[in-house]
C-alpha cells in the first residue's frame, strides 16, 4: 500500500488553492445560489413532506455539491495530468500499483467533496435549517463522495480530450443533480421515471442524507445500493488504470 504520495500531491495543490481566496468563494457560489433561490426564495413558507422546504433542500444540495466536487476535481486533475502535462506517467512508471493510485486519488476527491458540501451545511444552519446530528449522515455523505470520486478517476482516464470529462458531466452528473430528489420529492414523478431513478446512486444519497438529516430512520437498502455502487466503481477505476497501457 503506497497511496500516500498520490494523495499528498492533490492535498498540496488543494491547500495552495484554498489560500487563494477567489477559489474558495467561487467553489461556494453555485450551491449558495441554489440555497438562496430555492431554499429561501422559491421555498419560503412552503413545506414539503411535512417539513419546511429549507430543511428539505439543504441535504439535497449537500448531496449534489458533494457529488459534483468529488467528481469534477478528480476527473479534471487526471485528464489534464494525463493528456496535457503528462504528469500521470510519473505514477504509471513508478512501482505504485493501480490500487495505490486509485486510493490516493479517490481519498483526495473525498476531502474536496466533503469540504465543499460542509460549507452548504454551515450556510444552511445559519439560515435555520439545523445541523445534522446522526452518524449515519456522515457515513452516507462520505459514501457519496467515494462513489463520485471513483467515477471521476474512471472518466478522467477514459477521456480522450479535456472536453470529454465535461461532456460526461453534462449528460450524467448535471441531470442527476436535478432529478434525483435534490430539489423536489421524486414520488410525484411518473412510475417509469421513478424506476429509472432508483438505479442512480444520487437518488439513494439524497434520500438517505435527508432522512438522517431530519433524524428519521435510514433505509438499509439505500445504504446497500450505495455500497454496491462504490465497490463497483472502485473496481472499474482500478481496471481502467491497469488497462491504460493499451
Amino acid at each position: 500500500m503506497n497511496f500516500y504520495p498520490i494523495f499528498l500531491r492533490e492535498m498540496i495543490i488543494f491547500k495552495r488553492r484554498l489560500l487563494r481566496l477567489g477559489y474558495l468563494f467561487s467553489s461556494m457560489i453555485t450551491p449558495l445560489l441554489y440555497l438562496l433561490t430555492f431554499g429561501l426564495g422559491l421555498g419560503r413558507g412552503l413545506s414539503v413532506e411535512g417539513v419546511p422546504y429549507l430543511m428539505f433542500v439543504v441535504p439535497g444540495i449537500c448531496a449534489m455539491s458533494s457529488m459534483t466536487n468529488s467528481y469534477t476535481w478528480i476527473a479534471t486533475s487526471i485528464s489534464v495530468g494525463r493528456l496535457h502535462f503528462k504528469t500521470f506517467d510519473e505514477y504509471l512508471v513508478s512501482p505504485a500499483t493501480a490500487r495505490d493510485i486509485m486510493l490516493g486519488e479517490v481519498l483526495s476527491g473525498v476531502v474536496r467533496g466533503l469540504f465543499a458540501s460542509s460549507l452548504i451545511l454551515v450556510a444552511g444552519s445559519i439560515f435555520g435549517a439545523g445541523f445534522p446530528q446522526s452518524p449515519i449522515f456522515l457515513l452516507v455523505w462520505v459514501l457519496n463522495c467515494l462513489i463520485f470520486a471513483c467515477l471521476g478517476v474512471v472518466f478522467g482516464f477514459l477521456a480522450k480530450s479535456h472536453e470529454d470529462t465535461a461532456t460526461f458531466s453534462n449528460f450524467f452528473i448535471i441531470p442527476m443533480a436535478f432529478f434525483c430528489g435534490t430539489f423536489f420529492p421524486i414520488d410525484k414523478l411518473p412510475a417509469f421515471i421513478k424506476t429509472f431513478l432508483y438505479f442512480l446512486p444520487l437518488t439513494h444519497a439524497c434520500k438517505a442524507l435527508r432522512t438522517s438529516f431530519l433524524g428519521q430512520e435510514v433505509k438499509i437498502v439505500s445504504l446497500g445500493i450505495m455500497l454496491l455502487f462504490f465497490a463497483l466503481c472502485f473496481y472499474l477505476g482500478v481496471v481502467t488504470i491497469r488497462r491504460s497501457n493499451r
Partner: peptide, 11 residues
C-alpha cells in the same frame, strides 16, 4: 526522463 517535461508545474 520523458520527452515531455512532466514535472508538476504547480509544485
Amino acid at each position: 526522463s520523458p520527452q515531455e517535461m512532466n514535472l508538476d508545474q504547480e509544485l
